[in-house]
Amino acid sequence: MLALLKEKETISVILGISFGIIARIMMLRTDYRQYPTYPHGKVIHVSLGVIAAGLGAVAVPALLHKNYTAITFLTVAAQQFRDVRNMERQTLSQVDEMELVSRGKTYIEGIAMVFEGRNYLVIFCAFLASLFSSLFQWYWGIAAGLISLLIAKKLQSGRNLGQIADIQIAPIKLDGPDLYVGDIYIMNVGLTDDQRIIQEQAMGFLIIPKNKNVKVTIANLGQRQAILHNLTTILGVYRDEGEPTLLPMAKLDLKTGNLAVFMLPREKDEQIALQVAKSVPVLENAVRLPSESAATKK
């Protein structure tokens, strides 16, 4: 048994698997979104992470033994993790139907994609740690593992709304039944009762894009829904089923491309709300770069 542990291959596989699992756990954050859910959602993803780590770690000894066919089962792994993406998409879509303010399809696709992507990062970490400890000494494996963890951490975080746009509080105005945030028309509120609630509870934001790329991003309906969902998750929402008028909304100012957000938070604290709005993730699927087009570069 001890002799087996001293073999170079065993050490490299163990190192690979360990770094893979560490990477998965490190990237598995359950924050205010409570997703993946605790405890079972987490159990599922840690288990899948162990499988991914195993695949990455074992691939190296297989390669070194010139066992090239063994590498083909990495394709099975890819299939497996695409299924993870499908599973997440389905679960989130089902859950989304029961939310007061939905996440929206773009956000769900984004989350599902992240789950798939992170499993590949786990394979990458395990592979590197295993490779370096196979080729050199075991401590090089640890060094490579640590560096790959740093890379994985770097790839984990995307940008947030505060980095790409200026966000400010805007006044809510009611002109008869017409509701405005700043100068931007939001909707027509017919009942005086609803108007009173909006007058008391509502809060408005103006999101001003920093450049033309951002204009496209915040015009994306999925990105707007994600903003509303995140705000309501953290601040709560003054709304119930059967109250179709009390609906948080985001509308564009067509002239300037600014986005007005109409919110009905439970906690009406402007500073916290501003902070929350700034921390809304920018959805990968909503990003476009018209500035990179050859036509506009001339």
Binding site: P177, N188, V189, G190, L191, E241, G242, T245
Partner: peptide
């Protein structure tokens, strides 16, 4: 106003004021 309020809750639809004395 009262009728519109009741109907909004019963039908789960949004009331809009057309500003000509009509609520839809």
């Amino acid at each position: 106003e009262k009728l519109a309020f009741s109907l909004e809750k019963i039908l789960d639809v949004a009331a809009h004021d057309l500003k000509n004395g009509m609520i839809i």
